[in-house]
Design a protein around this nucleic acid. Structure first.
Lengths: 222, 222
DNA sequence: GGGTTCCTCCCCCGTGCGGGGGAGGGGGTT
DNA sequence: AACCCCCTCCCCCGCACGGGGGAGGAACCC
């Protein structure tokens, strides 16, 4: 028997999910919450196997609730419920410790499959977002990264050297010392970089470098 | 009916998987391959819904096979089979386009659940590796992101507003117009941001904002 | 009431940034 | 040979940036 807690501020959604889950004899909804705070309290009281968590909720939103749930009830699986188009939260939610993602627009069978998977400790991503999420997670931000890489590809090698250091937050003088150049030369390179990348200032160039994966984050501090 | 292709160089594994899948009336093993090359040829010939792919195989290993499968048979779901301890391949396999991961030491029900999930287009990660993989994937930048988030957390709300625009590459004057402020006020905020974040210039602040997920990439161009 | 923090705005001032243009040498291609 | 691109360095110049310090009003807490 899989015990489920259902947290969503929209009662219609709760009713729908409850109806779907009622059809499965192995799944039992033990409690329902209307906001994040309540979801945490009821989780501690009922100790469900899986918490279905809406991302947007009053008082304490789903994203913040995950972190607290992972601390206070580490054995409980967290499955996020989301509306199509809220992709930007997915990576963060997974980072906070969510085990899966379901689209509210998805097939009822996905809901059951997702709950089963999470109850066993597995991770489950809803079909329509699975590929996007994986490429985003593994790629760093693949869609943007691709564009950034293309732009950076037609920089000269030396310009890329300079761009890396720009991306680390170094001044032209610091870059000059690092590359054994005169500051004027660095300025010339930076100007060339800006025009080639279509960036208006070094901050935008730095962001592009960062998106393309040129920046070694460990070096950002030095 | 879910059509499955089974690719593994060890016949014992194939026999075991076949036995498990035989118990499920909805799943049919349409072909078996002993190496990666064969797996690709048979996939093109039989067009299965899901390919179960061992990571280590002769001729063409599983990792290389994924990439080719994604190109030649994009509609086919790829589910990796792995022995415990091969974690380092997981991230790369997912990056290549695999939809899931199963441990050979796992419960038979995981195998069935994973195949069903992947057949529907969802992603499935085996229980014992799910958490590690997610933390590793998000962790690539999560470790830094966590630090960046903490630093940014103790900015005032208004300072975060400014930082977002700094991260988009806007000048102080542009930020002032956007926020209906005088440029001097923006400069005061930026100065405060730099000292609080320990950044030496706005580029480093922008990188921190970017790492913390504050920057909306769509806005970077304006 | 006094205290704090935040937000807003003001001053001055030094310097780093970014655009303009030019110039020389080296390494390619045609 | 002539050509083009890359890398290096030089000049000037205007402006944006970043640090310093101060100040008033609003909101909060003790």
């Amino acid at each position: 028997m899989i015990r489920v807690l259902l947290a969503d501020d929209e009662t219609m959604i709760r009713a729908g999910v409850r109806a779907i889950l009622a059809a499965d004899p192995e799944i039992e909804v033990v409690a329902e919450a209307g906001d994040g705070r309540e979801a945490i309290d009821l989780t501690l009281a009922h100790r469900p196997d899986v918490v279905l968590l809406d991302i947007r909720m009053p008082r304490l939103d789903g994203l913040a609730a995950i972190a607290e749930l992972r601390r206070t009830a580490p054995g409980t699986g967290v499955l996020m419920l989301t509306t199509f188009g809220e992709d930007e939260y997915i990576a963060r939610a997974l980072g906070e410790g969510a085990s899966g993602f379901l689209l509210k627009t998805g097939d009822p069978r996905e809901l059951l499959a997702g709950i089963r998977a999470v109850a066993e400790g597995a991770a489950y991503l809803s079909p329509k977002v699975a590929h996007r999420v994986i490429t985003e997670l593994t790629g760093g931000r693949m869609s943007r990264t691709a564009a950034a890489r293309e732009q950076i590809a037609d920089l000269t090698p030396r310009e890329r050297d300079v761009l890396v250091l720009v991306g680390a937050g170094l001044s032209n003088a610091q870059i000059a010392r690092r590359l054994h150049l005169v500051e004027g030369t660095v300025k010339a390179h930076v100007s060339a970089i800006l025009t080639r990348l279509g960036a208006r200032n070094r901050v935008q160039a730095a962001i592009l470098a960062y998106e393309a994966g040129l920046v070694d984050p460990a070096a950002s501090g030095s």
